[in-house]
């Protein structure tokens, strides 16, 4: 009985309601990108705190992409899973890649001269975080923030 009730929730497919791609090549692209993310977050009725968390996370990842990957492509998607709505952001660059992801996800580790908060901090700000990287090919980071997450 319980299983039958639970299963549909667990297996609810993730549907993409809206998709928007944006190229990031220079520093000046960051502010328009942040505004675009904010627009979508407002549209689905996300609260101010969650909005701020999402945009801050996006800002960190875009900066990483510019600094280490020489820019790349971002995809903003409005997604829904069951009754939950959310925003999914994908950042993909064709940079040098990350040789040791485990190390990069540690607080305080940085190959640049930053504080090393970018990746681990971002993970704390969002609901779902996924990073894939191949040395010499590039890095793709995907984050999801649910409306009420």
């Amino acid at each position: 009985m319980e299983k039958r009730l639970l299963l549909p929730i667990l297996t609810t497919p993730l549907t993409v309601l809206n998709k928007d791609a944006m190229l990031i090549n220079k520093e000046q692209d960051v502010v328009p990108f942040r505004n675009r993310v904010k627009e979508y977050a407002v549209k689905i009725g996300m609260g101010l705190v969650n909005q701020t968390k999402l945009i801050t996370a996006a800002s960190e990842l875009v900066r990483n992409m510019l600094r280490y990957g020489n820019g790349g492509e971002t995809i903003i998607e409005v997604i829904s899973k069951g009754r939950e709505n959310g925003i999914r952001l994908t950042f993909s660059d064709k940079g040098p890649g990350i040789p040791n992801i485990e190390q990069a996800m540690k607080d305080g580790f940085s190959t640049g001269k930053s504080l090393g908060l970018g990746l681990p901090g971002t993970k704390r700000l969002v609901n779902e975080f996924d990073i894939k990287s191949k040395v010499g090919e590039g890095t793709t980071v995907m984050i999801i923030k649910w409306k009420n997450g």
Binding site: V49, K53, L115, R124, L125
Partner: peptide
């Protein structure tokens, strides 16, 4: 500082 910014900063670990 806006409240939402403060919340985000602490969670970020800054």
């Amino acid at each position: 500082m806006q409240p939402a910014v403060a919340i985000t900063l602490v969670e970020l670990g800054l």
